[in-house]
Design a protein around this nucleic acid. Sequence first.
DNA 1: TTGCATTCGACTAATTCAATAGAATTACTT
DNA 2: AAGTAATTCTATTGAATTAGTCGAATGCAA
Lengths: 135, 135
Amino acid sequence: MKINTKVRYGLRAMIEIAEKDNLTGILQKEIAEKQDIPLNYLDSIISGLRGAGLIINAGGKGSGYFIAKAPENISVYDIYRAFEADLTLVQCSCDANECLRSDYCPTKDYWFMLNKTIKDTMKATTLYQLLENKK
Amino acid sequence: MKINTKVRYGLRAMIEIAEKDNLTGILQKEIAEKQDIPLNYLDSIISGLRGAGLIINAGGKGSGYFIAKAPENISVYDIYRAFEADLTLVQCSCDANECLRSDYCPTKDYWFMLNKTIKDTMKATTLYQLLENKK
DNA sequence: TTGCATTCGACTAATTCAATAGAATTACTT
DNA sequence: AAGTAATTCTATTGAATTAGTCGAATGCAA
């Protein structure tokens, strides 16, 4: 049970992008420097965030990145989902065919509950709250 | 973010062991059959549970395994800990030296909170509750 | 002493993770 | 139009982890 680096870096990159005033975008290079993320690696992070519709690159080359929606409308889980499939702690709890004992297995419901708790917690915190917390 | 098979199998094995009447222990072979766990693999699971003090093998050969404490005193997290180190979603949140920006990083506190939520949830459910749920 | 149960450690195949490298593309600047 | 910096894409790598297997050693009991 670990949060992988893409999600961790992704969250940090989002904060960096969100913090920037909306007048000028922020360049990958600048994010990489401020957050100590290898530039080459960061581009796959940026690519994930862009694909998830969380950031946009307004114009071409030097325009930099902007946040795509208001920070209060972006949850940590949104960022998680930019890099990972829907959270599934154990396979059987989302796919009953996965396991023959599914009908009477008491662990299935438990893992499902834990899964929901984690997911709900990630959905409950927004980027806005993280930014407030920083001040 | 996955629960690995040792923890999953370990929980199922514990339920199997706890369900058995206290008069006779349960053999590895029996657990393996009832829970569809490869016998060879199960022995490392058993070893983990035994090492954590959750089960005991009373006598020698055919005596089988018994649960070491009352099911209401065994949490899911106890079983998790039989196979895994203390839950640490991200390294920096438990080791401030790990990261230079630790002092002002707003993600650190967030991951720490999520970490605690997950851990508390696993601590809050006991084996007893899972057995009740099965009935 | 034979057999079954248990225990231990080494090993492996497959997968995932984190990061790098290089090429291709884009579009601003002059 | 040419040069250049930024961006995007694809492929690759090395390390680590996971899930499981295998074989041998040990222990006890009939």
